[in-house]
Design a protein around this nucleic acid. Structure first.
Length: 676
DNA sequence: ACGGGTGTAACT
DNA sequence: TAGTTACAC
């Protein structure tokens, strides 16, 4: 899994910035009374006090650990303050933490290439900044070195009680005869110290950081002195650091690979790896992993900092452990609706704030069948093209689920009436959206064309989304209609639910009482389709997404056949004046060093994807046959050409793989080619 | 059959 | 490609 990359430059300056117990800090900012108190963030308080997902350093001192239950935490530390994760739609809602993370990224992205590694971690490539500093204003030329920088930990440098370690750090940073690599790290220290101070000032969040020559070492270092400190790894300290480092501490080696390294080869520290030749390692772990390990042992890792400030996918999921496992289709549908709603909301924000569109919807579930030999068969994942609009996502998610369920249950799952208890339990559900692409900005002829075409001044992303909903034929038509036949075929009469109204809107607590539904785990597709519509319609009256600020839909839109047309996307998008000040009008100029005007709080609309400045290939993830042909044909030829260039280059002219028979395992037939 | 909810990346 | 598996926080 890890893959070997050659070191690209011998003296990059890479930083890893890690927020200290981030969720706790977010809650403490909201409730300043909690500052300084032992605090933990917990989710689902009802069972054994809920699970801890973040623990303050005060609480860690009393022995509270992440992944304790709330009750255990109380036992270990009676004064502990437990704060619950917000709940929306019956599930944990992490949005406040996500946007807090964005605040931080906005600040950290100013000084160099920046990669959002997770909700609370960031990598920075500060090579350019450090080199500039070294050239223009090297540390020894400065009147004073930042106090925060002087607090840095420098590996390999002694730091005894009574030492004036700040003086030593100053000396180290300013050493004239230093290795150039050390000088660069010295500059990195100063820059990172500055950034961390800025983060603290502007967000009130503290963080720790590691500064080194590559990501792996920087990551290692950021965790060495927490909270609110930074650690530097000079080249000269690498070997000693690694020689005694337990193998499992290395990123990527915390799991099975690390375990088998220990058990199969007796490798307990990273240093132990040095004994093995590259060939030997490859022999055991394959070419890629072998080389990767060989490099790791030497502190070599060429992995680059991706200039990416935004996530590549969005997901919404929930587990239903033990007795809460879902037992009825309608209950599954209920939860899929909740998850889809959240996902849709996040997609709307992404479109609104970042002008990005996702193109694949994936459903994951986990399940078990008690009373069966293969009760632990994996529940298959399924995906399909993503259509914008809450109800569409809900519908598609549910259909994907049913397809997966039929596959999971196998040919004998279709008639459970004979087999007494033989039935499924769903222990986890998640929906996610991926293959997210930027909407190309401003200057292409496509944009100009639609700019001139569009009559309506409009278009928050909300409205874009609404219009997809409006223009799309009702949910049960088109691709989903066809499904019902097959789905019905997979069900026995006995399975057809007559408990629709009872089942359709279960509250979470009712999950426990689903026993009564057991005998009728299925409902017909047509029932369920109606159910979907009815429900979502009533919900839509209160949902902001569906509130229509109605406008007439033009005729070409009405011709669209169920998929949102890429052209519609353009039209709706273009009609809006760009909120993002897209100054990279000509995106051929790398803009990495450009200072972006991030407005740290309130909006991340300014969170520009840094890839713009690089040679990122902006390709539409849409297949040409997902686009409304009639609309497409109406375009000037020149525009058609340009549009094609945005589309997937290797598209199969006519769905080459589709079987005639519609086997359960192929999702292709759920999305028949558009009639032309 | 409680580490939950998310996210990335490589492999097949 | 779609789906699976591993890993991390």
């Amino acid at each position: 899994m890890p893959i070997a990359r050659p070191e690209t430059s011998d003296a990059r300056v890479i930083a890893h910035v890690d927020m200290d117990c981030f969720y706790v800090q977010v809650e403490q900012r909201r409730q300043p009374e909690l500052r300084g108190l032992p605090t933990a963030v917990v989710q689902y308080n009802e069972w054994q006090g809920g699970g801890l997902i973040a623990v303050s350093y005060e609480a860690r001192k009393c022995g509270v650990k992440r992944s304790m239950r709330g009750d255990e935490a109380k036992a270990a530390c009676p004064e502990i303050q437990l704060v619950q994760v917000p709940v929306a739609r019956g599930k944990a809602d992490l949005n406040t933490y996500r946007s807090a993370g964005s605040e931080v990224v906005s600040i950290l992205a100013q000084s160099g290439k920046c990669e959002r590694a997770s909700i609370d971690e960031v990598y920075l490539d500060l090579t350019d900044a450090a080199e500039s500093m070294l050239a223009d204003a090297p540390p020894e030329s400065l009147d004073s070195i930042d106090e925060e920088a002087l607090k840095s930990h420098i590996l390999g440098m002694s730091r005894n009680e009574g030492d004036d370690f700040k003086e030593s750090v100053r000396d180290w940073i300013c050493r004239k005869d230093a290795d150039r690599r050390d000088k660069l790290l010295g500059c990195g220290m100063i820059i990172v110290a500055e950034l961390r101070k800025q983060v603290l000032k502007e967000t009130e969040f503290s963080c720790s950081a590691g500064i080194a020559h590559n990501k792996m070492l920087a990551k290692l270092a950021s965790g060495m002195n927490k909270p609110a400190q930074q650690t530097v790894v000079p080249y000269s300290a690498v070997q000693e650091l690694l020689s005694s480092l337990p193998i499992k501490k290395m990123k990527q080696l915390g799991g099975k690979l690390g375990t088998s390294l220990q058990t199969d080869m007796g490798v307990n520290t990273v240093g132990d790896l040095l004994q093995f030749s590259e060939a030997k390692l490859q022999e055991h772990w394959g070419t890629n992993t072998g080389t990767w390990l060989w490099n790791i042992a030497r502190g070599i890792s060429g992995e680059e900092v991706q200039g990416r400030l935004l996530p590549k996918s969005h997901g919404s999921g929930k587990t239903f452990p033990g007795p809460r496992a879902l037992k009825s289709l309608s209950n599954v549908q209920h939860w899929l609706n909740q998850l889809s709603e959240e996902l849709s909301e996040r997609l709307s924000s992404d479109l609104d704030q970042n002008k990005r569109i996702a193109s694949t919807l994936t459903l994951h579930a986990s399940a078990f069948k008690s009373k069966d030999s293969d009760s632990h068969k994996k529940f298959p994942s399924k995906s399909c093209p993503l259509r914008y609009g809450v109800t569409k996502i809900q519908e598609d998610a549910f259909n994907l689920f049913q397809a997966a369920l039929r596959e999971y249950m196998g040919p004998f799952g279709i008639k459970p009436q004979g087999n007494k208890q033989e039935t499924w339990r769903i222990t986890g559900l998640s929906v996610s959206a991926s293959k997210i692409v930027d909407i190309p900005s401003g200057t292409s002829s496509i944009m100009r064309y639609f700019q001139s075409q569009s009559t309506v001044p409009s278009c928050s992303a909300d409205r874009c989304v609404q219009e997809y909903v409006e223009i799309t034929p009702s949910a049960s038509e088109g691709c989903s209609e066809q499904r019902s036949i097959e789905t019905q075929a997979a069900m026995s009469e006995e399975d057809i639910s007559t408990h629709y109204t009872e089942n359709i809107d279960p509250v979470p607590e009712k999950d426990f009482s689903c026993q009564s539904n057991e005998a009728t785990p299925f409902q017909t597709q047509s029932e369920s389709s109606k159910g979907t519509q009815r429900k979502t319609q009533s919900e839509s009256s209160k949902g902001t997404q569906m509130k229509r600020i109605g406008r007439k839909i033009n005729s070409s839109k009405e011709k669209s056949q169920g998929m949102p047309s890429i052209v519609d996307i353009f039209k709706n998008y273009i009609a809006t004046p760009q909120s993002k000040q897209e100054t990279e009008e000509d995106s051929t100029v790398p803009s990495t060093s450009k200072r972006n005007n991030f407005s740290s709080r309130s909006s991340h609309s300014s969170e520009v994807n840094q890839e713009v400045g690089e040679r990122k290939e902006t390709k539409w993830g849409y297949k040409i046959d997902e686009i409304d042909q009639s609309v497409f044909d109406e375009l000037p030829e020149e525009i058609q050409l340009e549009l094609r260039s945005f589309m997937r280059p290797n598209k199969r002219p006519n769905a080459g793989k589709s079987k005639g028979d519609g086997s359960a395992s192929s999702i292709a037939h759920y999305f028949p080619p558009l009639k032309r």
